[in-house]
Structure formats: C-alpha cells, structure tokens
Design a protein around this nucleic acid. Sequence first.
DNA 1: GGCCCCTCCTTGAACTTTAAACAAATGGCC
DNA 2: GGCCATTTGTTTAAAGTTCAAGGAGGGGCC
Lengths: 177, 177
Amino acid sequence: MKAPASAPATGSTAEPQEPRWLTDEEQRVWRSFMEGATLLDDHLDRQLQRDAGMPHVYYGLLVKLAEAPRRRLRMTELAMLAKITRSRLSHAIARLEKNGWVRREDCPDDKRGQFAVLTEEGYEVLRRTAPGHVEAVRQAVFDRLTPEQQKSLGEIMRIIAEGLQPTEAGADLPWLR
Amino acid sequence: MKAPASAPATGSTAEPQEPRWLTDEEQRVWRSFMEGATLLDDHLDRQLQRDAGMPHVYYGLLVKLAEAPRRRLRMTELAMLAKITRSRLSHAIARLEKNGWVRREDCPDDKRGQFAVLTEEGYEVLRRTAPGHVEAVRQAVFDRLTPEQQKSLGEIMRIIAEGLQPTEAGADLPWLR
DNA sequence: GGCCCCTCCTTGAACTTTAAACAAATGGCC
DNA sequence: GGCCATTTGTTTAAAGTTCAAGGAGGGGCC
C-alpha cells in the first residue's frame, strides 16, 4: 500500500479524482497520533480498571456528574458531554448503578426523561481514586510536554473536536443517534 | 469535584502528598484532547464500518500487512506495530480470516509462530477503500490544521507514544501481556 | 536427555460497545 | 381534542475487547 507524495494529473472527465494521499510527513504525524492515542487509552483504562474498578469512560461519567449542579444530569446531556451514544450511556449507567455509584431518578418536567445522579459512594470512589488518576495523566502527558506544547495540543484537539460536531441540523453526532 | 489550581503546602511527615491537580488550563487541554480523540475515533470507526465493513483497528491491521515484505507479519510483530494485545489480535485476525481478507500461515523457523498474510481480496478491499478513508482523515484533521500545527501534533504525540513504551524490561506493553 | 522457565499464540467467559428496533412522552399543527 | 413527527431513553442481539488460563515449542542449563 503505497501513498504517493505527489499525485499525477488527472483529466477533467468523469473519472474519479486521484485521492489526496497523505505525504510521508503527514503519514508520520498520523501514525504518531494513532499510536499515542491507542497507548494512552490503553494505559489509562488499565490504571483505572486496577485502581477504581471501571474503564476510563465510566470514570469520566462520574466526573461529569460530580461537576454538575446537584450532581445529576439528564441522560442525553451526559451523553453529549461525554461524546458518546445514548445507548452506550444506558449500558454504562446500568453498570454503575449496580455498583451503587449512580442512581437513576425520574425527571418531573418530562416523563420521558431520566436523571443520572452520583451517589455518595460514587463521590467517595472519585475522591479516593482521583489523585492516582491525575498523577497517571501527568506522567503520561503533561510532565513530558513544554508549556508551549501543552497549549498547542489544546488548540489542535479543540479544533478537531469542534470540526466533528458541526452545528448544522442532521449532523451525525453520537448522542443524537 | 474541584481541582484546586494551587495546592496548599503539606508537611514533610508520613501524610500523603497533596495530589498535583491539573490547573484550569491543563484541565481544558486534557478535555479537548479526550473529546477530540473520542469523536475522531467514533467518526473513523463509523466511516470504515460503513465503507469497508470493519472497525478502524482492523483496517489498520490490513494496512500494516500491506506494507510488510511479502504482505505478512508474525502475530506478535503485528500486535506491536498496532499497539494492541496479542489476544485482541488473535480475535481480530480470526474475524478477518473469516472474511477472506487475511490467512494464517505456519512459521517454518518456529513452530509456535504464525504469520498473518494479507490475501488478494484483502488487498483489494484496501485498494478500494483507502481513498475514502484518507479523505475522511484529511477532512477531520489535516485540512483543519496549519503546517505548524501538524508538525507540532506529530512531535507531541510521538513523545506521548514513546513515553508509554519504555525500553526497560518488565514494562507493561500490550503486546507482551 | 531431562528439567525448567520463558515465549508464542489461542481460547472461553465476562464485560463493553454497536446497531437496530421499540415504547412512551412531547410538541406542533390542524 | 386528535394526529403525526420528533425526542428520550431502553432493550436485545451481535460484535468487539479484556482477562485469566493454558497448550505447545524454544532454549538454557545440569
């Protein structure tokens, strides 16, 4: 599978455009990204599974709840904050509920609605495991980057994130699937 | 869950160190990273599931095989390149084999060993779907970043990736689990 | 050879995620 | 009110991943 750096000129007929292949340098960037992201995900999943008994995504859900007013959020709202599908969230909350870390509550305003509420034990787990997790993130990311790189990383990833959640109607956003 | 920007001084006794919480700015960087990575992963998984009938990771495996001499790699070698566990790879190759895109071959030198070999149909799938995938990556990432940002992203993610695969013996690397 | 430890890879069960289908409630519109 | 499209959240089954265990071969050492 070669990725030619320069594309041969194509005619202006109905033939398909020559794909805009990645240059060698772009390839290197892309691979570094995928490798870093894969390893980081694996690393943090492992750290949290070991120390908190849940995967990284679930931990992130508890954090969002802890930050929310009255430690509760509507399901769709939580899915949106976590950038996941409602289905995935339903399963996750069911599991966290079984652990006693979250409980569901009906929404008074909208009988379809459900709140996910962080329980006291859930908060306790977070308090107990947050220091270790922050430390893991520091060691893997922040301690290795200069302040300029940290800033740059933030800008870059924010651009990518925004690009993937267009405001237009009909956009394929996970929490609306 | 608050993350104090400045930590109160702690005594030099046996009490646990005050965690090195993330500053507000670090928090923003970290969240942008997680959100961008999550959305990107979801986006590419979806694109490839739709157009190539397999998840992003599986697609990556085919690419690695296509680039390898004689389009084949030892299982552990492939796991290392893809930064995943051998178990995960075993399952993945089993699935790709069922699709006829990969076949296994015994290693003559080492009777424990297996080669994963890209079949002609596998190569064909790749040839057919690569343009669409490259385009998706461009749209989501490269088209949105300046050359400087691209360079920066490459450096940053390479640092993170390297940091997570230390050369020391006993390191917890996915492909050695 | 025989022993032991390590490497290579697979397996099955438990867990997580995705995809598709669904019920119930809402809200706009007539 | 009655209708209908949309929103909200869940459920089921299939697909993918992790975890723990294990079979089989390699390779050093006696």
